[in-house]
Design a protein around this nucleic acid. Structure first.
Lengths: 144, 144
DNA sequence: TATTGTTATACTCTATAACTATA
DNA sequence: TATAGTTATAGAGTATAACAATA
């Protein structure tokens, strides 16, 4: 990786994100999932309610067309099902299957384990500080 | 974006990284550069010395083949030149052109501006804390 | 006419594997 | 035979634009 002198905040973020993404690819490979699919599955199962495609896209921060690709993959793997929304037949509701929920359970262990590994150099207090700063950044900050 | 309750550190990182990347795409578009190309250009111009392809790849944290693609684009745009290394003709040295250095100068203004915008919700002290934590993460942490 | 999702297409970033030219 | 870089190919992630079905 780039070991430059005094890298700025964006650079540091992207570098860390790259490490996290590679770590995820390794962890998720055995489960047959890509990071994007795993994230979508988590969002879909989060509320316990069937989710509209458009809502999923919004929560993931992607355009609806991109959500279609992700859900296609999850459906092909038997982890979610699609059904028309009774309330409006042009909307599609996505629901996790039993297999999807089982996969999700396996994932969360792996996630915890990986986070430990990635942030091992920071103390518990430092991690809390970091989490707080990032949360502030992601809730208050403008879309830019 | 995903507004979940209590997201974990990896999730927060990837979310922030996505915001940064989109911001970069917007900023760099007018300059005709992608984020990856811009980063490579910065690394190439950093030392003032011609850089080997393999060294560039290492600094960017990518495999040599991927560096070829990035440098192809930079060379096509007239921002860098390739020349065989006199010390070993199978090695290639990459050097920024005048145009490359000029583009770099334009970029660094835009970068500063964008960073201000992205981290506007944090105080100066908070940014310093954040930078310190990220730096610790990126110098000490294992490759995983 | 406006909304929801999809088909079609394309581009960025990155990877592995095989080949070429050197050393 | 080992090294540096490239050609060939592939896959993940995302986007815009055009279109169908529904409202």
């Amino acid at each position: 990786m780039e070991r430059s002198p005094d890298p700025d905040l964006p650079e540091l973020f992207l570098r860390t994100a790259k490490r996290i993404r590679r770590n995820q690819i390794e962890r998720l490979g055995p489960l047959g999932l890509t990071p994007g699919q795993a994230r979508a599955l988590r969002v879909i199962a989060r509320t316990g309610e069937p989710l509209r495609m458009s809502t999923l896209a919004e929560h993931l921060g992607i355009v609806p067309r991109s959500a279609t690709t992700v859900v296609d993959a999850l459906a092909a793997a038997g982890l979610v099902t699609r059904a028309p929304d009774p309330a409006s037949r042009r909307a599609t509701l996505v629901t996790p299957t039993e297999a999807g929920l089982a996969t999700l359970a396996k994932m969360s262990d792996a996630r915890r384990h990986a986070a430990e590994e990635l942030f091992a150099t920071l103390s518990t207090e430092e991690r809390d500080t970091l989490r707080g700063l990032l949360a502030a950044l992601n809730t208050t900050a403008p879309t830019a």
